[in-house]
Nucleic acid binder design. Structure first.
Length: 220
DNA sequence: ATATCGATTATCT
DNA sequence: GATAATCGATATG
């Protein structure tokens, strides 16, 4: 294991933590833990890669065009799950930031599994043969959502500050080192902003290339 | 190792 | 009717 498995009990995070600018929340979410509690087991994984989305001013954000049925959670209070369905296949998880009417958010892009790895593999339909296969579980926004069984029907709007919700964010005292910041992945507009945060050299980070290099547009 | 492409559907124009 | 905050498979060097 690259990171310590756990430094102690996992404690919930105050709503005030999320009531701040998305860049700030994104940066500080690194090293925190996403937890799924079920009756019989706990899934837990360290947050190692996130992206900030800035709300209505940010052309890449789902909030850019104003409030709709899909993105309504983004315009609500901070600390709640915004789950959307994309490319006909994948769910992605965000946490709302800032305050009512101000639709900042942070997208979860990659996690390092800490517990419940067998269940994550089952949910992903994978049988890892070696530790090198483990990133297939949670490296990427669609993968981590599938590993945690996150769906829009079940999890959109759930309170990520409350363990009672079954899906929540906790901290165990881990302090991340060596954070890298790059442009966001997979967007067209707003691709120049440095809003992707991840732990350098962590094997669970998605998209190994394009770490720092902006895309050079193809010639015509 | 990097590049390209098809899958598949909720959501918005 | 077009698009998308992705993934996995395939092709090519």
């Amino acid at each position: 294991m690259i990171l310590p498995v756990s430094l102690g009990p996992i404690l919930p995070i105050d709503r005030a933590f999320f009531a701040r600018a998305p860049r700030r929340v994104a940066r500080e979410l690194l090293g925190k833990i996403l937890v799924r509690d079920r009756e019989d087991l706990r899934l837990a994984a360290r947050i190692v890669e996130v992206e900030a989305y800035l709300g209505e001013n940010d052309p890449a954000a789902h909030a850019a065009a104003g409030i709709t049925a899909r993105n309504a959670i983004l315009f609500g209070p901070p600390g709640y799950a915004y789950v959307y369905f994309i490319y006909g296949n994948h769910y992605c998880l965000n946490v709302s930031c800032e305050r009512e009417e101000k639709a900042g958010s942070v997208l979860f892009r990659a996690l390092e599994p800490l517990s419940g790895i067998t269940e994550m593999a089952r949910a992903r339909g994978i049988v890892p043969q070696t530790p090198r296969d483990l990133p297939k579980l949670t490296a990427g926004p669609g993968r981590l959502a599938q590993a945690f069984g996150i769906t829009r029907a079940h999890d959109n709007g759930c309170d990520l500050t409350s363990p009672d919700s079954g899906l929540w964010i906790g901290q165990d005292g881990f302090l991340p080192r060596n954070i890298q910041i790059t442009p966001r992945i997979g967007i067209k507009e707003g691709a120049d902003h440095l809003l992707r945060y991840f732990l350098a050299e962590n094997p669970f980070v998605s998209v190994r290339n394009r770490l720092t290099r902006p895309r050079i547009p193809p010639r015509t």
